[in-house]
Simulated scan of single mutants.
Amino acid sequence: MQPLLELNNVTKTIYNQNEDINILNGVSLKIYPEDFIVILGTNGAGKSTLFDSITGALNITSGKILLNNVDITSKNLNTRSKYISRVYQDPKFGTSPRMTVAENLLLAKRRGLKRRLIFRNLKKHLPEFDERLSEFKTLDNRLNTFTNKLSGGQRQTLSFLMSIIQKPDLLMLDEHTAALDPQTSHELMEKTDEVIKKEKLTCMMVTHNLEDAMKYGNRLIILQHGQIISDFNSEEKAQLKEKDLLKYF
């Protein structure tokens, strides 16, 4: 099977206090269609840098990144956003507070398209948006609510919905439930897993929650000092205990 995303010897080097430091140190990884990869690692392991490198938020120092066998190493963030979407940890990040839920979803529908002056035709999209919101209890009947009036959990659910509305080639979840209370976090994580399976999405998810790391996804990657030190498949992952993961921290 052809990888959807391939990283070949990806390195990101920064200059700090008279020395070069590799935040990513020769990372090679193949991600296949419908993979749901969970990534664990301590603070400073390189998780955010890995995500920034894939999305184009950071330029890598060396190596190659291929998406659908096309070299995207030199492509910018906006170009890659046509194919790659990302949900951040902060519920306020990724949504516009002074726009309604419907208007935010319309922005997401146009992600990666050329910017030009056109009529927005919001009404045309309302039935589609209303149907999508009905799948998420916390946002049902909230189409005309301004985003700054939503709770953190509702706003993060909106960010997730915005990220999948165009069905990206790759969905990247950057600790997207970490800032929520335990109940809301659990509900969004359950819904995330349901949607990924239903829509057959390919996903990478960073988490510090060991229970979630063991429960969700078909692969588990451990990142340490900018290198992948373990890549467990679904069978190996099923045999892991929480104590097996604690040794990496």
Results as ranks from 00 to 15, higher is better:
M1D: 11
Q2K: 07
L4N: 02
L5D: 02
I14D: 14
N18W: 10
D20V: 11
I31K: 03
I31C: 04
D35C: 13
F36R: 06
L50S: 07
D52N: 14
I54R: 13
T55H: 15
T61A: 14
T61V: 15
G63C: 14
K64P: 06
L67P: 13
N69T: 06
V70H: 12
D71F: 03
T73S: 06
S74H: 15
T79K: 04
S81G: 02
R86F: 01
P91E: 05
T95D: 01
T95R: 00
E103F: 00
E103H: 02
N104K: 01
K109G: 01
L113R: 01
R115Q: 08
R116M: 06
R116V: 06
L117Y: 09
N121P: 13
H125I: 01
F129E: 02
L133W: 02
L133R: 01
S134H: 10
E135N: 08
N141P: 07
N141D: 07
L143V: 02
N144R: 12
T147C: 04
K149H: 12
K149M: 11
K149C: 10
G152T: 05
G152C: 08
I165H: 07
Q166R: 09
Q166M: 12
P168L: 03
D169G: 04
L173N: 02
D174T: 03
T177D: 04
T177M: 04
A179S: 15
P182C: 05
T184Y: 02
T184G: 03
E187H: 00
E190L: 06
E190G: 02
T192G: 02
T192D: 04
K198L: 08
K198S: 09
K198G: 08
E199K: 08
K200D: 07
T202R: 03
M205W: 03
N209Y: 14
E211F: 15
E211N: 13
D212I: 09
D212T: 14
D212R: 10
M214T: 10
G217E: 08
N218G: 12
R219G: 08
I221C: 09
I221E: 08
I222E: 07
H225I: 08
Q227W: 04
Q227G: 12
I228E: 05
I228L: 03
S234I: 14
S234T: 15
S234W: 08
A238G: 09
Q239F: 15
L240S: 12
